[in-house]
Design a binder for these strands. Structure first.
Lengths: 145, 145
DNA sequence: GCGTTCAGTATCCATTCGGGAACTATAGCG
DNA sequence: CGCTATAGTTCCCGAATGGATACTGAACGC
């Protein structure tokens, strides 16, 4: 039943936390999403995933392959042809990813609004600061990316 | 129905992709998980989330607050008391996160095994390389983290 | 006056990430 | 001979991430 208690994601040495870190990188999710629909060659993948340079693509694909989420099939032809596809394990990730993706899509607006509100408040607060009329000033929002 | 087509996560300028990046950072998920059970003060959060230094904690919390996922309540007492809790929006993220978390927990083993296999193969291949007896050598696995 | 508590800040520094661009290998085509 | 296409690899460099450590402020108890 309560298998969840076996792992504590919050602990530094929890393997499931490591997994979270792995799939939480800049490109992993995107590649998996791209491969969810179809088998793709390197250059197709590159075209599909906006902004990916060959380097990061290779790195991420190798990591994905190492972890058994993606398989890489090389056809010994010239020019080279290499196909990437999701493994069974990789495909099993699709469901949780879809949930997150869906959340992102349905809540982008709210997040963006919240962000604008916060930024507006922050700049209002800092202006109030300069006219020395505020009690309880919030710390500045900070850009953080 | 097909609202998904409105957004293409794979495109560089898709807002939902930005969200993915935001929640996919090293600490965000962990903090949200930590706050899922209870309201926590700064130092409690720090104790809960293994390895988080005050700096990263502050950064992440500010970002979370800015995006409306976490609220921050300051009690004007000394020593200071600040409570963090999930907002409604933040709580809505719990479900997709739980899905990912569950995937991580149920598939860690497989991933770890795949990784070991891959590493074993890679080192075998590189040994074969040195004795010059291999055809079709895989490129080396690369550590990548 | 001193130490303690709490929630951060500030500062410095090492490592990593990631982008850009050039380079490689190979076979077919002209 | 040189061009093209594909799947990378390599090098360089700037930016961002993140860790360690020390410091601040304000009231309370001693």
């Amino acid at each position: 039943m309560d298998t969840e208690r076996e792992y504590d994601v919050l602990s530094v040495d929890c393997p499931s936390r490591m997994i979270l870190n792995r799939i939480g990188d800049r490109w992993t999710l995107l590649i998996i999403v791209a491969l969810s629909r179809e088998v793709l060659r390197f250059s197709q993948l590159r075209a599909r995933v906006g902004g990916a340079t060959p380097k990061v693509l290779t790195q991420t694909l190798r990591a994905l392959e190492r972890d058994g989420l993606v398989s890489r099939e090389v056809f010994p032809v010239v020019p080279p042809r290499v196909e990437y596809r999701l493994t069974e394990l990789g495909r099993s990730l699709l469901e949780p990813i879809a949930a997150v993706k869906k959340w992102a899509e349905t809540h982008v607006e709210e997040v963006l609004e919240a962000r604008e509100r916060a930024d507006a408040m922050a700049s209002a607060a800092s202006e109030a600061m300069s006219s020395a009329s505020s009690s309880m000033a919030r710390p500045r929002a900070g850009v953080l990316g």
